[in-house]
């Protein structure tokens, strides 16, 4: 797969998948989004990347050239050298195929080996067992639990915080030169 910057025309692909409760329960509140809103969001990813506060990319599957999701390092803090990780595979037919796992490895390599982060953390809803397994497998550690921190579909749920430090990531996933080409940058 390839991580690449978003183009405005991607808004349509995003919309085809994004107003879906089964997907959105994992990402926050399922508030419907419109196409122009998504286009604005895409423009915002360009500006944020220039400022160095956020690195958001589309995940493109290499066989058919399909845009299947997005991943992001956001709230990049220049003094603490950390950022939060976010990822979504919108295309449900491509869940459980290891695409998310590979994309997370790529974006974390980007974080540690290209933009010089010291740590990356993430938040995940406690009912998202599939994601938690992937993060554990990649070396993220469970470090905190935010009690009843998110209200989804009529209920409060705990949110797990997981993080990984640069030296831990280096041991598990040493720098592999091709990832730079894979980012398309």
């Amino acid at each position: 797969m390839t991580l690449r910057g978003f183009e405005l025309k991607d808004a349509e692909t995003i919309l085809a998948h994004f107003n879906d409760l089964e997907l959105r329960q994992f990402l926050g509140h399922p508030l419907p989004v419109s196409k122009q809103e998504e286009e604005e969001w895409i423009r915002r990813t360009w500006e944020a990347r220039q400022k160095g506060t956020e690195y958001t990319f589309g995940i493109e599957e290499n066989n058919k050239g399909l845009l299947v999701g997005s991943c992001s390092l956001f709230d990049v803090h220049s003094i603490n050298r950390n950022a939060e990780l976010g990822i979504a595979i919108w295309n449900k037919s491509l869940w459980d195929k290891g695409i998310g796992s590979e994309a997370i490895q790529l974006i974390c390599s980007y974080g540690f080996y290209l933009i010089n982060l010291h740590s990356i953390f993430l938040r995940v809803h406690d009912f998202n067992k599939r994601a938690i397994r992937v993060y554990e497998k990649l070396g993220f550690q469970h470090v905190a639990r935010k009690r009843e921190a998110v209200f989804i579909d009529g209920k409060y749920h705990d949110v797990h915080v997981m993080d990984i430090l640069e030296d831990e990531f280096r041991k598990l996933h040493p720098p592999a030169p091709p990832f730079i080409a894979a980012t398309g940058e």
Partner: peptide, 16 residues
């Protein structure tokens, strides 16, 4: 209630 930590998340005076 203590809920955990974010490791080495804040840098000041020379250390995380």
């Amino acid at each position: 209630k203590p809920g955990g930590r974010r490791r080495q998340a804040s840098y000041f005076e020379g250390t995380y």
